[in-house]
């Protein structure tokens, strides 16, 4: 008995420690980004960093550190991805949970989840050899290495999360809601659209935010497929370079301790704050959702 108690306590401590390690890591990452970013602003002015649109630390003449065009590109690609992934994801989730036969669902669901396991380099490669030429052909462009290509690929990468979480949310809608709707004479389509989906809005919001976080932080795929032009894009058909791609491209070659080195931390900090906000928002919505569930 004594021994059992000991192991009980022991593992409680171990797992408590593990949980705290996660928290400390997050705080550590944040502090590291903050401290290194602060050093960037010793030489680069806030105004230049946030309002400038030209990012050229390895310039021929004077180096410029403006995050504007990259920030806009990141948002452009991410929002584009969400515009594609959200309707598709919700539709697919609704189909899986409400319409598909158990047999179809048993095939489709693991297949969709498997999509999440495809490495991002592979998706980026598909973007170069498959999506880019197709886009160039469809829209009559000289090349398809643009923001739209990135959006399509990120949409594919965000879909598994979106579908899984949305489907769980739809599943959690109590059966008697639907039964009441049927009893009032609504058909399946009306029930889905007017009763089931509205009653799990917050769950769907969480799914969207998680998908958004995934798309924001993705590096390799956009690095390969969007052409990496640092100019301010005019739309989805222009080549763009996202913040993640910039950090990935430039971190390898930059000598330690230079303004360029610290500026990359500042870029990473901006990205970190955006994803943190998205995740906090998702957490908030999810908390409200759980309260409502009870």
């Amino acid at each position: 008995m004594n021994q059992r108690l000991f192991w009980d306590k022991f593992f409680e401590k171990v797992f408590k420690g593990t949980a705290w390690v996660a928290v400390l890591t997050l705080v550590g990452i944040f502090l590291m980004l903050l401290i290194n970013s602060a050093r960037a602003f010793e030489t680069i002015s806030f105004a230049e960093f946030f309002s400038g649109t030209a990012w050229n630390p390895a310039a021929y003449g004077e180096a410029t550190y403006g995050i504007g065009a990259m920030l806009f590109s990141t948002l452009l690609v991410t929002i584009g991805a969400m515009l594609i992934a959200v309707p598709l994801g919700i539709g697919a989730a609704a189909f899986l949970s409400e319409v598909a036969s158990p047999r179809t669902r048993n095939i489709l669901k693991p297949a969709i989840e498997m999509l999440a396991a495809v490495p991002s380099v592979v998706i980026g490669f598909l973007g170069i050899v498959l999506v880019a030429p197709a886009l160039a052909k469809i829209f009559d462009l000289p090349h398809g290495l643009n923001a739209l290509n990135g959006s399509i690929l990120l949409a594919i990468m965000a879909l598994p999360t979106l579908i899984s979480v949305t489907e769980d949310a739809i599943h959690a809608v109590p059966q008697h809601y639907k039964e009441a709707s049927y009893a009032l004479g609504a058909n399946r389509w009306e029930t889905l659209l007017r009763v089931t989906l509205p009653s799990c809005t917050s769950g769907i919001l969480v799914a969207i935010m998680l998908g958004l976080g995934r798309a924001l932080g993705e590096t390799m795929t956009v690095l390969m497929a969007t052409g990496n032009a640092t100019a301010m894009p005019n739309g989805f058909f222009d080549s763009v370079r996202t913040i993640t791609a910039t950090v990935a491209i430039e971190m390898g070659e930059v000598p330690f301790g230079t303004p360029h080195y610290f500026s990359l931390f500042a870029c990473a900090l901006v990205l970190f704050l955006i994803t943190l906000l998205v995740n906090i928002a998702a957490e908030r919505v999810a908390a409200g959702y759980r309260r409502k569930g009870q």
Binding site: A132, L145, G227, N228, A229, A231, D238, S239, I249
Partner: peptide
């Protein structure tokens, strides 16, 4: 020019030029 597409290596430039 800021609109230049920055590719990852020689092979990528070769493939991109073929297609454009």
């Amino acid at each position: 020019a800021p609109g230049i597409k920055q590719m990852n290596g020689n092979a990528q430039i070769l493939e991109a030029v073929k297609a454009d």
